[in-house]
């Protein structure tokens, strides 16, 4: 087992010594240099003139697009903020206006109530006066009627007593005298 490892190692060393490093065989160098130059040149030409600009272009394009989109987003945000400010402004204005309208309405209503109260008071006073007048009239009427009735009664009593019809003036004076007394 050990001997086989040693044999393999020995063989490796032998190969290295006998043939020498293939890398140091100068007769293969021109061919290697030639094909290295050919393959490397082709690759360099394709890379520099075609593939790398394409990849770089794609990356650049994406970067531009992202920057564009970010700009657009910022613009949209600005617009939204503006709209919000405008909304808040108009909301404030509306609030002020509403407050003014409410105040006005309150004042108007109060004025109306005062006016109505005045009107009601006036009509009430009128009606009271009217009623008072009517009561007064009715009182006077009643008094007159009572007096007339008293006159009539007096006249009738006098007629019955003295068979003489007294004049109205005398009757009235007598009744008035009696009433006074």
């Amino acid at each position: 087992m050990l001997s086989s490892i040693l044999l393999a190692a020995e063989e490796a060393v032998e190969a290295a010594e006998s043939g020498g490093l293939p890398q140091l065989d100068a007769s293969t160098w021109p061919s290697q240099i030639f094909w290295l130059a050919v393959t490397f040149a082709i690759l360099y030409w394709l890379m520099s003139s075609y593939f790398l600009p394409r990849i770089g272009g794609a990356i650049e394009e994406r970067r531009d697009r992202i920057a564009d989109d970010l700009d657009k987003a910022a613009e949209s945000k600005r617009l939204a903020e503006e709209a919000e400010a405008a909304f808040n402004r108009s909301l404030g204005e509306a609030r002020i206006r509403a407050r003014a309208i409410a105040g006005e309405a309150r004042d108007e209503a109060a004025a109306e109530i005062v006016a109505m109260q005045k009107e009601a008071d006036a009509s009430l006073a009128g009606k009271t006066a009217e009623a008072e007048k009517r009561i007064h009239d009715m009182k006077a009427n009643a008094a007159a009627k009572v007096r007339e009735a008293a006159n009539d009664t007096t006249r009738a009593i006098v007629e019955a007593l003295i068979l003489e019809t007294p004049t109205d003036a005398v009757v009235s004076a007598a009744v008035a005298k009696a009433v006074k007394a």
Partner: peptide, 30 residues
């Protein structure tokens, strides 16, 4: 052998003037 893998072997013999520029296994892998 551990050195065999480094051997340059011509596949298509080519010359440019006096210079040997054969298409070898090295050229193949390039």
């Amino acid at each position: 052998g551990p050195m065999e893998q480094f051997q340059i072997l011509p596949i298509i013999p080519l010359t440019l003037g006096d210079i040997d520029i054969s298409f070898t296994n090295s050229a193949l892998w390039m």
